[in-house]
Write a protein that binds this DNA or RNA. Structure first.
Lengths: 229, 229
DNA sequence: CGGCGGCTTGATCGGTCTCAAGTACGGTGG
DNA sequence: CCACCGTACTTGAGACCGATCAAGCCGCCG
């Protein structure tokens, strides 16, 4: 197993001056911990961590987007989550990563040393509570994701669009950071089926697709009604 | 929304003498909290909590089994998890239950007041850590569940059998507490497909099914190889 | 013995995958 | 500025897997 990319990158960062945390508005932890996050840049498709590596860090997306995924024996890829600016990720049940994470496009990510977070949590119950809340929120997201996977193709795509709209706080139009292949791997479909479902929604007058990665909502109510959850 | 069953039941329990916690060997929390769990009995199909209710309690299965599920608009049911003796459940991102929980057969469950657990966690960082670990473990389970749902029917059933075997620490034979319908709703399949997949596995010589709810493993290696994860 | 619920088995239908072209877009170099 | 190229996306035709509809079977309990 090769050296985790994150470890190398963080080490190389230690010689740089620490920039202050970005003014993203969302604070991961109160006070002291926030300044512990070392900003790192990942380029398109660069690995942030790999399955089986020691989970030494927690991460927070500042800009760009991240995919978390697992590869199956036969080569299929299941994307478990997309992380957008403001999202934290890297929570794991054990001390090993059960999945891999990669930058979708160029991305800036704050990196927190896990042991530092844990020791801070041991002293500061408020930090511990936030840590627990974030893990619980991640659990909720995972459960919603599992729900998606039993729906029809059209329902999955509709739910996905609504999820993305809610997470980017955009009501009328969204810009997707990920490819059709990534959407397909997230929804448990093929690119062709995703494309067809989008085409159906468009011909139903629910959305319009002026560019492949730009979706405008023409009838949000109808879109919500297609979503069975 | 009707009064949560758990609330009523706990209230009625307050007039009973507290039995000591069951000697199950698995401890939810160190020390004081363990004795805070009020044992409750639920009968077959009885609701433990319902979607949308306030999440006032945490639960630990002592005996029997519990299903956690959501109902979709069109009546489909997605079972998100089965909880077996030793498992804790009821963790939620918000202060509301996002799903419902019911006893599969008659079941004994320890009930912990959430606010008491939280205030204990605020004082005792060890409790806070355990709480976080359990939530993270639940997150891992949910992610594995999502992975199941993109597999073929036979792979899903094989994975399910392996999961149940691992969780009951049984290597050669398992006794399933749940019906085919519940297995189907957990795996995102129909009862017919579950039944056929079991039949195929049996005719392949991988398992044998002496009784509908009793599965013996004839070739665990081959079963593991069918599982694509 | 009869009846009922849970499970299995069979035949057909439909949605999604697969394979295969075709098209639009973004970037690069002339 | 335009021609070219490669990648991403769309669209079409046919195959396949699991859902659906419909009987039949088994075990349990009255």
């Amino acid at each position: 197993m090769s050296m985790p990319a994150a470890v190398l990158a963080v080490r190389s960062m230690q010689h740089h001056s620490r920039r202050p945390a970005h003014p993203t508005g969302v604070h991961a932890f109160s006070g002291t911990l926030e300044i512990m996050g070392a900003p790192m840049l990942f380029s398109r498709n660069e690995e942030i961590y790999g399955e089986g590596e020691a989970a030494e860090y927690l991460y927070k997306v500042v800009s760009g987007a991240v995919r978390m995924y697992k590869l199956l024996a036969d080569g299929r890829r299941q994307i478990g989550a997309f992380y957008l600016p403001g999202d934290m990720f890297g929570f794991e049940p054990g001390d090993m990563h059960a999945a891999s994470a990669e930058a979708i496009g160029d991305a800036t990510v704050l990196v927190f040393k896990r042991s530092a977070v844990l020791s801070l949590a041991a002293r500061d119950s408020d930090v511990a509570r936030r840590l627990w809340e974030m893990t619980a929120r991640e659990l909720g997201r995972s459960q919603k994701h599992a729900l998606l996977l039993i729906l029809s193709a059209q329902e999955r795509v509709a739910s996905f669009l609504l999820e993305m709209a809610a997470r980017t706080r955009a009501s009328s139009e969204i810009e997707l950071p990920m490819s059709r292949q990534e959407i397909a791997d997230y929804l448990g479909l093929t690119i062709e089926t995703v494309s067809r479902a989008l085409g159906q929604l468009e011909s139903m007058g629910v959305i319009s697709v002026p560019a492949a990665r730009r979706i405008t909502f023409c009838d949000s109510d109808k879109l919500s009604r297609i979503n069975a959850c």
